[in-house]
């Protein structure tokens, strides 16, 4: 159960030196990665939250629509829309996974190769 000492002991075993961290931190590639990461993550989070919250509001205003029965069956629109939230969650996640695989992974790989190359 140690405290601040740990920081130094950790750095002591660290294959990368303190300089490496500063170098990575200041490199344009790293800044670009962070910028891209944020530009994907924050708007996406805002959009999906908005979607759930607006859905709740709509459900409140559209009571009659929500209690409509679908084709003579006993299942209401509200029930189906509720279940569709699972589908929408899955779709949003798929979008994120695509974006991350396409936009974030390649630049991360570049940085890694650059730094590993520089180490040799």
């Amino acid at each position: 159960m140690s405290s601040s000492l740990e920081g130094t002991s950790r750095a002591g075993h660290d294959p990368a030196t303190e300089d490496d961290y500063v170098r990575i931190q200041q490199s344009e590639k790293f800044q670009e990665l962070r910028r891209r990461h944020r530009s994907v993550v924050f708007p996406l989070a805002a959009v999906f939250l908005a979607w759930y919250f607006v859905y709740v509001l709509l459900a409140d205003y559209a009571h009659d629509f929500m209690s409509t029965k679908i084709g003579g069956s006993n299942i209401t629109v509200g029930l189906i829309m509720g279940l569709l939230q699972f589908v929408s969650t899955f779709i949003i996640t798929t979008v994120y996974v695509r974006l991350a695989n396409k936009n974030l992974d390649p630049i991360a790989k570049e940085i890694r190769e650059e730094i590993e190359g520089a180490d040799r």
Binding site: R10, H13, D14, P15, A16, D20, Y21, I24, F30, L33, R34, H37, A108, K109, I111, R112, I115, E116, D119
Partner: peptide, 11 residues
């Protein structure tokens, strides 16, 4: 450490 790509030679 939090934001650098995986598999960098960082502890």
């Amino acid at each position: 450490r939090l934001h650098a790509p995986e598999a960098l030679p960082l502890r």
